Computed example of a mutant assay.
Amino acid sequence: MENLHIVFWLFKDIGWCMIWKPLGIIMIVPTLVISILIAWRTRELMSELCHNLAITFWISANSYWMISEFMGFDHITISGWFTYKHLALIPFLLGVFCLAFYYAIWQPRHPDEIETM
């Protein structure tokens, strides 16, 4: 499933790069659904869960950014220099917080736990 996830992700980004809007937008669904399923399957291993949630947030941010460019509202200013494209920072930062939580809080408090798949 993880390998198929990468294939969908690559096709999504190829669609974005080549400005093939239908391909890019259609590939959001399988890419995001599989990343959520992977995170769900690994929910019992905190290391895997945090990293897979970060990936899911990354795909969400990346997908929003792509849609904002495709639909032409990426450059519209919300306030000051902040544009609609910058709203992608919300899921990007959620991913960073997932990893920060794991490395700064969870892992130091559970040094003896071995996490492998």
Rank of each mutant, 00 (worst) to 15 (best):
F101C: 01
Y102I: 03
L45D: 00
V33Y: 10
M27W: 10
S60F: 03
G80A: 03
L94W: 03
T56L: 06
C50K: 05
I67Y: 12
R43V: 01
S63F: 13
L89R: 02
K21C: 08
W81S: 08
W16L: 12
D74Y: 15
I76S: 07
T83Q: 14
K85I: 08
L32W: 13
L89F: 09
L49I: 00
C17E: 03
P91V: 07
A61W: 12
W16R: 05
I26L: 12
S60C: 13
W65R: 10
A61Y: 11
Y102V: 06
I90K: 02
A100Q: 07
S35Q: 08
L45H: 04
S60D: 06
I26F: 11
F73T: 10
M46F: 04
L53F: 07
I38M: 00
L23R: 02
H5Y: 12
S68L: 14
I76C: 02
W20V: 14
L93T: 09
S63T: 13
N62D: 15
W58T: 09
T77H: 08
I67G: 10
L32T: 08
P30H: 06
L53C: 12
L23S: 14
C50T: 14
L53K: 04
W9D: 14
K85P: 01
C50N: 07
L10V: 15
I76Y: 08
L37H: 00
H5D: 15
C98F: 03
P30W: 01
S47W: 00
P30S: 07
I28W: 04
S68D: 14
L49V: 00
C50M: 12
I59L: 10
L49D: 00
E44F: 07
F57W: 12
A100L: 10
I26G: 08
W9E: 11
G80T: 02
V96D: 06
L23N: 09
M27S: 10
L99K: 09
M66D: 09
R41N: 04
T83A: 14
R41T: 01
M18T: 07
M27D: 10
H51K: 02
I76V: 15
R43W: 05
I38G: 01
C17H: 05
L89T: 12
I26N: 07
I36L: 15
W9V: 11
H51Q: 04
W40S: 03
A54W: 00
V29G: 04
G15A: 07
D74C: 13
L93C: 02
V33C: 05
L10G: 11
M66K: 11
I38V: 13
L87Y: 13
W9L: 12
I55E: 00
I14M: 08
L45G: 00
L93H: 02
I90E: 06
C50P: 01
L10A: 12
E69G: 14
M46P: 00
W20P: 02
L93S: 07
T83P: 06
S63H: 14
L89A: 05
I28R: 01
I36P: 03
F11K: 13
G72M: 03
E69I: 15
G80F: 06
W20L: 14
K85E: 13
L94A: 10
W20A: 14
G95S: 05
N52E: 05
E48N: 12
I59H: 10
L10Q: 09
L10I: 12
W9P: 06
P91Y: 02
S63I: 06
